[in-house]
């Protein structure tokens, strides 16, 4: 496989805080790679290093063969970067912002309009509105247009969907999927575990370390223990009670259900059911399920704590 992004042993420390610790990561050409982890995991630091805005303490990285230190000038031409914090000019209009980014990259809106057309038509009715007065979802769309207007080879998106509602998030992902067909490699970070399913591969990151790298389908096999899904009338009571049972490794709320992990060596579905019943909870819907990315992430978090 040919790699668009190659990261080797990158570390970065801010004073006492080890923001990144020996990060190794490879992203194939044309892949959508998801970097999934909560705030403070080190995602933005990694982005700043890859975009040549910050030097690593250790390690090296190259993008499409260009080194982040030696070839930073050239790299800046071929990367599209959307920072985590909204960083367009709030007091310029939608159109002025786009014009500005096209000009500094020595191109015009017209030249690469086909790349942004699908997104920009939604913004067009508001093209004279100041960027600062757009809603969250629209700001993200404009930022994506500005990151794309010079036709980058690699797109680096730092939490483009944070604070964006579920419908706008889905639309945003559809745009990424389409861009991906234009052979643009995409590294995208997110704190939303459900977005993992939209990526070709995902890397889970926490406390400056990559916990695992896998495809969304294969990641399930990493789960340890048997996962059950439980539901009853009084969920809070069920949560407290289930957590106290023998053989229960973890117990978390998942929307309208509980996800309970049991050790298959010492427990099983029937045992959980009867243990709950002796504690006075008899009407429980209980079934085995497959682990999702969020289940796996939480298990890896606990393992790395221990």
């Amino acid at each position: 496989m040919e790699y668009a992004i190659e990261i080797e042993g990158i570390s970065k420390r801010y004073g006492d805080v080890q923001a990144l610790q020996q990060i190794d990561l490879r992203v194939g050409k044309g892949e959508i790679m998801g970097l999934i982890g909560p705030d403070g995991a080190g995602k933005s630091t990694l982005y700043r290093i890859l975009t040549t805005l910050l030097l690593p303490d250790e390690g090296s990285a190259s993008l499409n063969g260009y080194d982040i230190v030696k070839d930073y000038r050239h790299l800046r031409q071929i990367l599209g970067y959307m920072p985590g914090r909204f960083s367009l000019y709030q007091d310029l209009t939608v159109e002025e912002n786009l014009e500005f980014f096209a000009t500094i990259f020595g191109t015009t809106i017209k030249e690469n309009y086909h790349l942004i057309e699908e997104i920009y038509v939604q913004l067009e009715p508001f093209k004279d509105r100041q960027a600062g007065n757009l809603s969250g979802g629209m700001k993200q769309k404009l930022a994506l247009c500005c990151a794309l207007i010079h036709k980058p080879e690699i797109l680096l998106l730092d939490e483009p969907t944070t604070g964006v509602d579920p419908v706008s998030r889905q639309e945003f992902w559809q745009m990424l999927k389409r861009l991906n067909t234009e052979n643009i490699t995409i590294l995208v970070s997110t704190p939303y575990m459900d977005e993992a399913a939209m990526c070709d591969r995902v890397a889970l990151i926490q406390s400056g370390e990559i916990l695992t790298t896998s495809t969304p389908a294969n990641i399930r096999t990493e789960y340890q223990g048997q996962l059950l899904s439980l539901k009853s009338q009084d969920m809070y009571h069920l949560l407290k009670t289930t957590r106290s049972l023998d053989g229960v490794m973890s117990c978390y709320s998942f929307g309208e259900r509980l996800h309970v992990t049991i050790d298959p060596e010492t427990s099983n579905l029937e045992m959980v059911q009867s243990a709950l019943s002796t504690k006075g909870i008899s009407k429980v819907e209980i079934k085995p399920i497959e682990a999702g990315v969020e289940d796996i992430f939480m298990q890896l978090l606990k393992r790395s704590d221990a």
Binding site: P38, D39, A41, G163, Y252, S253, F297, L301
Partner: peptide, 20 residues
């Protein structure tokens, strides 16, 4: 107002237990 945005999934659940 969006009290759990960006928080890791375990902390997010602990936060909801405080709400309860």
């Amino acid at each position: 107002d969006e009290p759990t945005g960006g928080v890791d999934p375990i902390t997010r659940r602990q936060f909801w237990e405080m709400i309860y």
